[in-house]
Computed example of a mutant assay.
Amino acid sequence: MVDVKLLGLWYSPFSHRVEWALKIKGIEYEYIEDDLHNKSSLLLESNPIHKKVPVLIHNGKPICESMVIVEYIDETFEGPSILPKDPYDRAIARFWAKFLDDKCIPLLGKVLFGKGEEAEKSKEEFGGLLKILDNEFKDKKFFVGDNFGFADVAANFMAFWFGILEEASGVVLATSEKFPNFCAWRDEYINRSQVKEYLPSRDVLLAHFQSRFQSPI
């Protein structure tokens, strides 16, 4: 029997990426919720460099970083492919996954949690990233044509968590007037039947992040 454990966090988009990949492949796994304010010894032993979730433990061996884990799952287990078969399409999928993780997510953090001039500058820069994504979705439904896959799993944050964070913080960044293609992609993404089953409750997530924004720093 395959021994698969996932150390995760219920509100983390990165943890949900890995759960999504496991479910696509039909893999049974043990989910272990961790506490980032009181990190378990298993987490610290399994990811001593970054000390964060998610961590996949497969037959006693840990793998870290969400999209690295998704690729590992895709390559290791039988089932529907997550990465495209075509080498060019595979490269494009990896490019957009890296763009989302390296550019979009860190900058959004500066927009929402930065102060004064830094926040305003970050907001302007983030608008530039949304423009890039808006142009990308001008003539297609997903990152690699009409096929939902690796880059779209990576995009769960921008498609789902981003809108919740906008509402929780009161900072609106993406409107259909300014970014019609991006917003249409986001709506299409969330409303696809094969996506809905992998997303957590919007109401529960919203309540969680509203409490975070309302808490005194």
Results as ranks from 00 to 15, higher is better:
Asp3Ala: 14
Asp3Glu: 15
Lys5Gly: 00
Gly8Ile: 08
Trp10Ile: 12
Trp10Gly: 11
Tyr11Lys: 09
Tyr11Asn: 12
Pro13Asp: 01
Ser15Ile: 00
Ser15Lys: 00
Glu19Gln: 15
Ala21Pro: 07
Glu33Pro: 02
Leu36Ile: 07
His37Gln: 15
Ser40Gly: 13
Ser40Leu: 06
Ser41Arg: 08
Ser41Ile: 09
Leu42Phe: 09
Leu43Lys: 02
Leu43Tyr: 00
Leu44Pro: 12
Asn47Arg: 13
Pro48Asn: 05
Pro48Cys: 11
Ile49Gln: 13
Pro54Cys: 04
Pro54Ile: 02
Pro54Glu: 03
Pro54Phe: 02
Asn59Phe: 13
Asn59Pro: 15
Pro62Thr: 12
Ile63Thr: 13
Met67Asp: 04
Met67Tyr: 03
Val70Ala: 07
Glu75Tyr: 06
Ser81Gly: 07
Leu83Lys: 00
Pro84Ile: 07
Pro84Arg: 14
Asp86Met: 00
Asp89Arg: 06
Arg90Asn: 06
Arg90Val: 01
Ala93Met: 08
Arg94His: 05
Phe95Asp: 06
Ala97Glu: 14
Lys98Val: 06
Phe99Glu: 01
Cys104His: 08
Leu108Gly: 01
Val111Thr: 05
Phe113Ser: 10
Gly114Asn: 05
Lys115Trp: 06
Gly116Cys: 12
Gly116Glu: 15
Glu117Pro: 06
Ala119Lys: 14
Lys121Gly: 15
Leu130Ser: 08
Leu130Val: 00
Lys131Gln: 09
Asp134Pro: 08
Asn135Ala: 04
Lys138Pro: 03
Lys140Ala: 01
Lys141Leu: 07
Phe148Gln: 08
Ala151Pro: 12
Trp161His: 09
Ile164Pro: 02
Leu165Lys: 03
Glu166Lys: 05
Glu167Ser: 15
Ala168Cys: 10
Gly170Lys: 04
Val171Lys: 14
Val172Ile: 15
Thr175Glu: 11
Thr175Ala: 12
Glu177Ser: 14
Glu177Leu: 12
Phe182Thr: 05
Cys183Tyr: 03
Cys183His: 03
Ala184Tyr: 00
Arg186Thr: 07
Tyr189Ala: 04
Asn191Val: 00
Val195Phe: 00
Pro200Val: 09
Ser201Gly: 04
Asp203Lys: 03
Asp203Gln: 05
Leu205Tyr: 07
Ala207Thr: 06
Ser211His: 13
Ser215Val: 09
Pro216Lys: 11
